[in-house]
Design a protein around this nucleic acid. Sequence first.
DNA 1: GTGCCTTTGTGAAGGCATGCACAAAGTCGG
DNA 2: CCGACTTTGTGCATGCCTTCACAAAGGCAC
Lengths: 233, 233
Amino acid sequence: MSNRLHPLEFRHVTRRIPQARDRGIPDATVARLPLYLRALNGLAERGTPTVSSEDLAAAAGVNSAKLRKDLSHLGSYGTRGVGYDVQYLIYQISRELGLTQDWAVAIVGVGNLGRALANYGGFVSRGFRIAGLLDGDPQVVGDRIAGLTVEHADELETVIKRRGVSIVVIATPASAAQQVCDRVIEAGVTSILNFAPVVLSVPDGVDVRKVDLSIELQILAFHEQRKADGVVM
Amino acid sequence: MSNRLHPLEFRHVTRRIPQARDRGIPDATVARLPLYLRALNGLAERGTPTVSSEDLAAAAGVNSAKLRKDLSHLGSYGTRGVGYDVQYLIYQISRELGLTQDWAVAIVGVGNLGRALANYGGFVSRGFRIAGLLDGDPQVVGDRIAGLTVEHADELETVIKRRGVSIVVIATPASAAQQVCDRVIEAGVTSILNFAPVVLSVPDGVDVRKVDLSIELQILAFHEQRKADGVVM
DNA sequence: GTGCCTTTGTGAAGGCATGCACAAAGTCGG
DNA sequence: CCGACTTTGTGCATGCCTTCACAAAGGCAC
């Protein structure tokens, strides 16, 4: 028996690596940029011309040093003694996040959640255009939702290729999710937002983000129980 | 990701206190427990009696060492050479998360998202009971959704107190969220799941978790843009 | 131009999470 | 009852993230 490293032990290392070759922005930072963007848009609406890291941090609910470090990854866009120009920073963050371009999104699965997503204003207002709604249920196909007609899931590949869809939202039941996932990847999609309560298995190079509504509630329940147990708060 | 401190409050640290007979389970672990639970339920349905950390980790999509370390925080529930008893582990994790008790949840805001949440099966099946649906729009009040009648938001305090609601889901427009938040806290609620795109300001001792659908899309767009820019993957 | 005041950008330290590697512990066939 | 085998639980090293603290930079008043 060898006590050296097994040469084949990198099966589980296939995870996406944040790797710093270019301007490698830390994942934690990327996840907060949308937060800053939202706060900035709020300030812009009120006509605020500039904002300090302290104030912006408060509006976004983070520590100001963290905010400054996050922004420093994008470049040096602040002015010492003054703060950040709101409009300019909005543009820079948007550009970094890729929101200055138009993204075509398809939603697969038009149940309650799919409908809610289709009608959700937060997408359209940020450069995401819903280019297709698809469902496997003939009962639902043909419905008009948010200005779009629901198409049959058979059309998935066609819709993706014809309309240049690059991001797919999976809002199907758990049982259909992996199959849909495989098909959209086969059709060339490499970014997936998954609402189905399953772990999707995907090849390298494909990004999957998962939103699980019940997990959040379970985490809350954990903390709520802690409080009730008489733990010193 | 969690109840963050307000930037101006970090002098008097009232942070989560790990002391007290220290069963202090790391936040990162708590966030994964629901994942393990789901994987275990899948195994239980197929009648699997025991599972190794390797297999369970694969089903949950995590590293097996991480899984073992996570579980070790709950206690020593595995058997060396064999693995974990599926049913027993389900029970232990459920208990730790507080899912063995019944949680009354109220959903405020019955738009598209609120309706989707009310109909979402993942809640009920995990010990969460929807005890109230409320909305400020008289047009919506009286609608029957998921077996419940929508009540007017004026009833918020009454509903919370009479029905023992301990977790509130805010699915209102951004403009109403803070007001709803203040009211439910005043009524004694200390756990809030917020879908409105605003940073809620709450006193210490109140847990807020936030789900923002558009943030996830923006993070995907960031990575998608990176790929398109010809970055080496 | 000078000096003061504000605020950024970042070096450094500490904390937390991750994943490897292995000893300890338990099973199982014979 | 024993020895081989499997798998857990964990010490440890590593790296990322957060936060503090401060020097450097720029604005502004005069």
